[in-house]
């Protein structure tokens, strides 16, 4: 909680600032969309944070999103599979991808960066091949299914709460529980800090790492399906591109250390929200969109620098106070 405070304040400052300059920020339509996309990105960011806590990385998330979105539309509209069959198959594929990564990393001792970088290329290619690189949509037959991504609960006036935020909250609560209240979570933090010591304490570190890659790919696949259902027009060649970087950035902003062993789900969710609000603000404030990446990059970098400075300041103060005793 405490760690997420700084970034939460930053999020609020950007929200308030944007709202003052352009009141449209607070319009029902804009709020709903921002929250929806926060939710979608939140889900894949939560996924990668498991991997980052083990000290690993997953660069394949964007491609997994693309593959699962493409596959879902392809199986439903081209192959005419039933909804449960298609959802089940895509879920299994994501799970298999996670398992594949995990096994290569734990049993073959390959580096996560290399394994998932190759994954990034592999799944993108597969998605384009399966779909013949044709853009796909769900047409009007799957409105019910699409509600999962585009539906919302009407509040008052033109304000509604989009469904995906409920999904994300559920995923976040479950993940938070796993990390904070279960042996699995404790082991994950322990091995992320010091894999040797964890192993010498009798922890099956390989299994824990494997599981974290499975969770990451599952959530990436699930997120990919939601993204596809939301946009309704899927370009196998580009859907989900750079999403892994957004997810990793959200996790890092939210307090995950790429060295492993650090991070909270609440922080990651706030991080994901910050990314989306920033993106939204760039549009609303009529900042040239060409600057978009530059601005997002600058904000993330500043966030990380401030976080590091605060940490050093706290450590110094602690050292000084113990030194005086």
């Amino acid at each position: 909680m405490k760690q997420a405070m700084g970034i939460f304040v930053l999020l609020m400052v950007i929200c308030v600032g944007t709202a003052i300059i352009n009141p449209n920020f607070l319009s029902g339509y804009n709020m709903e969309n921002t929250i929806r996309w926060t939710a979608l990105f939140g889900i894949i960011s939560i996924g990668v944070s498991f991997v980052i806590i083990t000290g690993g990385i997953d660069l394949s998330i964007g491609s997994v999103c693309g593959l699962s979105g493409t596959l879902l539309a392809y199986l439903l509209t081209v192959k005419g599979w039933s909804i449960p069959m298609a959802l089940g198959t895509v879920t299994l594929v994501s799970l298999a991808i996670g398992l594949f990564h995990g096994l290569l990393i734990t049993k073959m001792r390959l580096q996560p960066f290399v394994v998932t970088l190759c994954g990034l290329l592999l799944y993108r290619g597969l998605g384009r091949y399966v779909s013949d690189d044709q853009s796909l949509g769900f047409g009007s037959d799957y409105e019910g299914l699409r509600q999962m991504a585009i539906g919302s609960i009407h509040l008052a006036g033109d304000f509604s709460i989009p469904y995906p935020i409920f999904i994300m909250v559920a995923v976040a609560l479950l993940s938070g529980f796993l990390l904070q209240f279960t042996v699995f979570g404790r082991y994950l933090f322990a091995l992320g800090r010091n894999e040797d010591a964890a192993k010498y304490s009798g922890i099956n570190t390989d299994r824990m790492v494997l599981l974290s890659y499975v969770i990451c790919s599952l959530l990436a696949g699930f997120g990919g399906m939601l993204f596809a259902l939301d946009v309704n027009s899927i370009q196998p060649a580009s859907m989900g591109e750079f999403y892994e970087l957004y997810a990793i950035a959200a996790a890092v902003l939210g307090g995950c250390s790429l060295r492993g062993g650090e991070g909270t789900i609440i922080g990651v969710v706030v991080g994901a929200a910050l990314m989306r609000v920033l993106y939204n603000a760039i549009n609303l404030l009529r900042i040239p969109t060409h600057l978009e990446f530059a601005i997002i990059g600058t904000v993330i970098l500043s966030g990380v620098i401030i976080d590091e400075l605060v940490k050093r300041w706290v450590a110094n103060r602690r050292a000084r106070s113990t030194g005086l005793q």
């Binding site: 322990a190 010091n194 304490s201």
Partner: peptide
């Protein structure tokens, strides 16, 4: 330091790990 304890974790977590 490398195999016995996890330096960044607190005492309670270290003592309870096994």
């Amino acid at each position: 330091k490398q195999q016995g304890i996890i330096l960044e974790m607190n005492l309670r977590e270290n003592l309870g790990l096994a």
